[in-house]
Design a protein around this nucleic acid. Structure first.
Lengths: 165, 165
DNA sequence: CACAATTGTTAGACATGTCTAACAATTGCA
DNA sequence: TGCAATTGTTAGACATGTCTAACAATTGTG
């Protein structure tokens, strides 16, 4: 029985900060206020103020004028957000064929509010679509045909509507 | 060349009010503050205050203690929100096989921030999934098999991973 | 038709998260 | 090493949208 601290629910905004800190931390050795401010498109005082809140919750370590680091708990939350972000991006980009930029933007917004159930199903869905070649003519390509021509491709058996009961 | 007023961008909250007014308006003859308050899970003063803002933008007609009605412009916005809501609900419920309640909840949140492009693609995607029977063994049922067993069904040609490249 | 119950409004507090302006610390380079 | 440029913080304004408390209008029923 693992002792599982109740993870504080975060607002969309705070999740964005956690996510950005984790991402910057991967590339750069040290994370600074200015970088966060630029990555998130907010002014520096907004970052300072967010860090204060996250520090109080012990998700972030940040001493005045110093480096910014996630605590283990903060990192866990951040990983979770990133995981959702990536799954959503894959869904939009790979499954729906949407350009990377739009896919990222939508993922960024939706990652904060989608339910765990939908998230799990969406992930499985993408996995399935990627794994299931459907006898050589895979789903995405048929879907693309449909997108482009507005009608089903030949190998969808001709029938067009014929769905209700 | 149709004169197309720039439609004021609405916040998620205001879109919720517009949507609720439209939905209530369909069933009941008159829409009242109390009903909106209950449907949206907020207190009455919140409704009054939202209606004031929407009135100022001429999306809603509401005279003190009186009925609440959408203007044509407000109705147009509301229809748009409802349209997104329904497409999203169908996606979650029908494509992902999620229970109606969760599907609705997620749709309610996502409808306010998804990009027009993703919305359009998602809609087409659901249409496609509903219309394409894939030679009798349709996508949703294979997907369900995958969900349940974690492996691809027979008619997905056996291969399991074999994707990269 | 009067008055109690219900519904609606106003005023103002509060929470979140942003911003600008002013000031403080740090840095890096001459 | 000292000072200018950069980076960071504090203080406080503002916008949005919620709430409670107090009051006002409407309603419906004896």
């Amino acid at each position: 029985m693992v002792k599982q601290e109740a993870q504080k629910e975060q607002t969309a905004s705070m999740e964005d900060y956690l996510e950005a800190i984790a991402k910057l931390g991967e590339e750069k050795k040290v994370v600074k206020v200015k970088q966060l401010s630029q990555m998130l498109g907010v002014k520096m005082p907004s970052v300072t103020s967010a860090l204060k809140k996250l520090s109080e919750q012990e998700l972030v370590v940040h001493e005045r004028y110093g480096h910014i680091k996630l605590t283990p708990e903060g990192d866990e939350l951040a990983r979770d957000v990133i995981c959702r972000h990536e799954a959503l991006t894959r869904f939009f980009a790979q499954a729906l064929g949407i350009d990377r930029e739009t896919a990222e933007e939508d993922a960024c917004k939706i990652e904060h509010l989608i339910s765990p159930l939908s998230m799990e199903r969406l992930t499985k869905f993408v996995e399935f679509m990627e794994a299931c070649p459907l006898g050589g003519v895979n789903f995405p390509s048929r879907y693309e045909y449909y997108l482009e021509h507005g009608v089903l491709p030949q190998d969808c058996s001709g029938r067009r509507v014929r769905q209700r009961k």
